[in-house]
Structures are given as structure tokens and as C-alpha cells.
């Protein structure tokens, strides 16, 4: 079995993002970037499946500018065998990403495609489902447990009401939740080895995918600041306000 894992380079989750002064977007210069957190879970799961003997090869793919390669290198350092970097410029919407991934799937013919459930930058939560649609493959989103069976996966999904279990036939797309596993650290020797693993580069144009955005980003702003309300004198007044003014209890 072969697993393709898609990883995205995003602003590190610890960095407080800053809106550009001209409201055209978010400042990304000199900002620490990292792998999108649930994508780390996706890689980890693929590596665990390989370690259990159920998969033979893991291919990590990223889409973006040159520096996005760091994300693939990190995936290679924790156990992916090979990397692909599809070079693009500017914003690439999930629809275009899923078209690129589709083209790669057609070339690589993986049995499974894993990725994080959502990127922490645009918060779209679309790519996995879109790729599943384009390939007409089953989709198991928000996976918090994956059991690999003979020709299928049993996937436990984190849904609003609790947990849901579905069975999807292979080939399938899985999007991973943070609760799926605890990603391992890349060891120093493995980082060294990762530098020598193959990393193919191509562009979206090579794959015949138009990445022109369909959605115009008109402006990006800081969320409005919340203003202080009132101070109440005592508990009775508080309960009265909550009951009769705010009507929340």
C-alpha cells in the first residue's frame, strides 16, 4: 500500500498574526512558519501504518512557494520516503489545491491520501473533501482513529455530537484530527538522512492546473475589539441582568 500525505506550510500557531496596514492580508515576512499542526498528525499516522507493515511507501507532498519544501523535508525526517513539491505563487484556493492533488494521485496512484482536517491559516476545511469529490473516492474526515482492514479502513470521526464510525473502501481520503495521535519528533540523524531523500519539483502549470483564485479577498481586518460592559454591584444584580437583560439563563 502506498500513502500520499499532503502537508501545508503555515504561520506557526504560536505566532500572533498581524494584519497588514493596507488591509491586503496578513504579514508573513520574518514570521516563523511551521507545518500545519493536523498535517503532522497525518504524517504520523501514515508512518505508524507503515511501521505496522501495512504500507510500503509514504510520499509527502506540499504546494506553495520554494520555502514550502521545508515542510516536506520535515515529513521526510519523520518517516516519509519521498517528497513532491508543486510550486505555486500567491493564494491557492482549496479547489485548485485539490485539482493539483488529483493530478498527483493520477500519477502516483496511492491507495490512501492523508492530510490535516483544516489549515490553521485560511481555516477553510475543504481540500480533503474536494479531492474525494474529484476522484469520486470515499472521504473520512475529522479522523481520530484509523483501523486498517483488508480492503478498507474503519475510521472514527470526531463529530459535534460525539464519535461516529464509518467504513470506507480503499482507495480513500482521510482528513486527520489533532486527537488522532501524538506526532513524533524528528531526530537529528533522521533530519540528516531526510536531506538525502528524493524530492521532486514541478509547477502547477506542469500539471495543467489553473490556480487563479475564484474568490476575491477584498480586505482583511482585525476583529473588532470588544468593549467593556458594566460592573454590577452584587450577585443578585448579576443574575437579574443575565436573566432579564441578556436573556442567557
Amino acid at each position: 500500500m502506498k500513502i500520499l500525505v499532503a502537508v501545508k506550510r503555515v504561520i506557526d500557531y504560536n505566532v500572533q498574526i498581524r494584519v497588514k496596514e493596507d488591509n491586503s492580508g496578513i504579514v508573513t515576512d520574518n514570521v516563523k512558519m511551521s507545518t500545519n499542526p493536523p498535517d503532522d498528525n497525518a504524517i504520523e499516522e501514515a508512518v505508524r501504518i507503515k511501521e505496522s507493515g501495512k504500507a510500503k511507501e509514504i510520499v509527502a507532498i506540499t504546494i506553495g512557494e520554494d520555502k514550502a519544501q521545508e515542510t516536506v523535508r520535515k515529513a521526510l525526517a519523520v518517516g516519509a520516503d519521498r517528497g513532491i513539491h508543486v510550486k505555486t505563487e500567491g493564494i491557492v484556493e482549496p479547489l485548485a489545491v485539490s485539482k493539483i492533488l488529483k493530478a498527483i494521485v493520477e500519477k502516483e496512484k496511492p491507495d490512501l491520501v492523508f492530510m490535516g482536517k483544516q489549515a490553521i491559516d485560511d481555516d477553510c476545511n475543504q481540500t480533503g473533501q474536494m479531492l474525494a469529490a474529484l476522484l469520486n473516492w470515499p472521504q473520512a474526515t475529522f479522523a481520530s482513529k484509523i483501523e486498517v482492514k483488508d480492503k478498507s479502513l474503519e475510521v472514527t470521526r470526531e463529530v459535534d455530537e460525539g464519535l461516529e464510525t464509518i467504513e470506507v473502501k480503499i482507495p480513500a481520503i482521510v482528513t486527520c484530527d489533532l486527537r488522532l495521535n501524538e506526532p513524533r519528533y524528528a531526530s537529528l540523524p533522521n533530519i540528516m538522512k531526510a536531506k538525502k531523500k528524493p524530492l521532486d519539483q514541478m509547477s502547477a502549470t506542469d500539471l495543467g492546473v489553473d490556480t487563479k483564485p475564484r474568490i476575491e479577498q477584498i480586505k482583511v481586518e482585525e476583529p473588532p475589539k470588544r468593549k467593556a460592559g458594566i460592573k454590577v454591584a452584587n450577585v443578585a444584580e448579576l443574575v437579574n441582568k443575565l436573566k432579564n437583560e441578556a436573556k442567557v439563563i
Partner: peptide, 11 residues
């Protein structure tokens, strides 16, 4: 976007 740390107006 960015977990509510920015709001985007999109068309």
C-alpha cells in the same frame, strides 16, 4: 481566518 484573529471580506 487564523482562528478568528482576523476577519476577511471575500467576494
Amino acid at each position: 481566518i487564523y482562528a478568528g484573529n482576523a476577519f476577511a471580506t471575500v467576494k
